[in-house]
Computed example of a mutant assay.
Amino acid sequence: MKKANEGADVIALSQKRVNCHGCDAGELCLPNGLKEDDLLALEHVVRRRRSLAKGQTLYRMGDPLLSLYAVRRGSVKTNLLTQDGRVQVTAFYLPGELIGVDAIDEGRFPCDAVALEETELCEIPWADLNHLAGRTPALNQQLVRLMSREIVRDEELLMMLGHLGAEARLAACLLNFNARYKRLGALEDRFTLSMSRQDLGDYLGLALETVSRFFTRLHDEGLLEVQGRDVRVLDASRLRAMVSQPNGRRGLRA
Results as ranks from 00 to 15, higher is better:
2 K>N: 15
3 K>F: 15
5 N>F: 15
6 E>P: 13
7 G>T: 12
7 G>D: 06
11 I>D: 14
11 I>K: 14
13 L>Q: 15
16 K>L: 15
16 K>R: 15
20 C>P: 15
24 D>R: 14
25 A>N: 04
28 L>H: 01
29 C>H: 12
31 P>M: 02
32 N>H: 13
35 K>H: 13
39 L>G: 00
42 L>C: 03
45 V>Y: 05
45 V>T: 06
46 V>C: 07
54 K>N: 09
54 K>H: 03
55 G>W: 08
57 T>M: 11
61 M>L: 12
61 M>N: 14
62 G>A: 07
67 S>F: 10
71 V>N: 08
72 R>K: 10
73 R>K: 14
74 G>R: 05
80 L>Q: 10
82 T>W: 00
85 G>Y: 08
85 G>M: 01
88 Q>R: 15
89 V>M: 04
90 T>H: 03
93 Y>L: 01
93 Y>E: 02
94 L>C: 02
96 G>A: 00
96 G>N: 05
103 A>F: 04
105 D>I: 14
107 G>S: 02
107 G>W: 00
109 F>Y: 07
112 D>I: 06
115 A>G: 04
115 A>P: 04
124 I>M: 09
126 W>E: 03
127 A>H: 06
129 L>I: 07
133 A>D: 00
136 T>M: 06
138 A>S: 09
140 N>F: 12
142 Q>E: 06
143 L>W: 05
145 R>V: 10
145 R>L: 11
146 L>A: 02
147 M>K: 12
148 S>E: 13
149 R>W: 14
156 E>T: 13
156 E>D: 11
162 G>R: 08
164 L>G: 07
169 R>L: 02
171 A>E: 09
175 L>V: 08
175 L>R: 01
177 F>A: 02
179 A>V: 05
179 A>H: 05
182 K>I: 08
183 R>S: 07
184 L>V: 08
185 G>A: 01
188 E>Q: 05
190 R>V: 11
194 S>D: 14
195 M>L: 11
197 R>F: 15
197 R>P: 13
197 R>L: 14
201 G>C: 02
201 G>K: 08
201 G>D: 01
201 G>F: 09
204 L>I: 12
212 S>I: 12
215 F>Q: 01
218 L>Y: 03
220 D>V: 11
223 L>M: 01
226 V>W: 08
233 V>E: 06
234 L>I: 08
238 R>A: 03
239 L>I: 01
246 P>Q: 08
247 N>L: 04
252 L>I: 05
